[in-house]
């Protein structure tokens, strides 16, 4: 088995007295699509935010390419290697679609305007949003905004992209568009960790599914293991609600 891209070891995280993560361990390899599933409040999003250092865990380590990022000195550099797509899209409201994709390339990767624009247009094309490059980001529909957000994350060429419930804020018709884009990226070998409630997506696309409950990993395995032969009663109970 190849070297793990991300290795999460014994992560503990509390908010005040509430312990949200109680010792999480898992690995992500290059090219993996890891889906984190579980009910709300089980700690999935918090786990994801720990990987991006938006939350500082009290205990544990997160190794990326064998380097503990919790002790990392250059947080900004590290974050540029780990893209993130949010539930609420979070496109920059004061910029056009193109500028949204260009700004970080210029500020972080120090690319020239022209090069950054070409890169941005390439990825906007990939998510099917090239025609909207000069539109104001606030005029787009939710599904369109989320696709731009994916392109924006891709533009800085991260090694992995974290998706935090990317389709939860979308209406059902638009969910398909976004999932389609994500599927295509997965098939092209992009490493992803996806927090999602889209069980069908997890079933079809994931290389590994992790079921979290009350701050611990209850069960993990291939989609088949989890969806067709779940072992733990809690997993079975959770999945029954989706069938």
């Amino acid at each position: 088995m190849s070297e793990a891209l991300i290795r999460v070891e014994n992560i503990h995280k509390s908010f005040g007295h509430l312990e949200v993560l109680k010792g999480i361990n898992f690995e992500v390899h290059k090219g993996d699509v890891v889906c984190l599933i579980g009910s709300s409040g089980s700690g999935k999003s918090t786990m994801l935010r720990c990987i991006n250092l938006f939350e500082q865990p009290e205990k544990g380590a997160i190794y990326v390419n064998d380097e503990n990022v919790l002790e990392s000195q250059d947080v900004n550099y590290y974050r540029s290697k780990v893209g993130m797509v949010f539930q609420a899209f979070n496109l920059f409201n004061n910029m056009s679609v193109l500028k949204n994709c260009v700004i970080a390339q210029k500020k972080v990767l120090k690319r020239k305007e022209k090069e950054a624009e070409e890169q941005a247009l390439y990825f906007l094309d990939k998510v099917g949003m090239r025609d909207f490059a000069y539109a104001s980001s606030s005029t787009l529909s939710g599904g369109q905004q989320q696709r731009v957000a994916i392109a924006r994350a891709l533009c800085i060429e991260p090694e992995i992209i974290l998706f935090d419930e990317p389709t939860s804020a979308l209406d059902p018709e638009m969910v398909g568009d976004v999932l389609e884009v994500m599927k295509r990226l997965a098939s092209e070998g992009l490493t992803m960790i996806v927090v999602t409630h889209e069980m069908q997506f997890a079933k079809d696309v994931a290389t590994k599914v992790i079921f979290m409950d009350k701050g611990v990993i209850e069960e993990e395995g291939s989609p088949e293991d989890i969806f067709t032969h779940p072992k733990k009663p809690r997993t079975q109970e959770f999945l029954r609600k989706f069938i």
Binding site: F54, N76, Y77, K81, F86, N94, A104, K107
Partner: peptide, 21 residues
């Protein structure tokens, strides 16, 4: 706050985030 998080997630520093976003 999502605007800040989006900028930071792309690797922008807090200063860059403040002045451009």
């Amino acid at each position: 706050v999502g605007q800040v998080e989006a900028a930071r997630s792309l690797g922008m520093s807090s200063m860059q985030t403040m002045f451009t976003v």
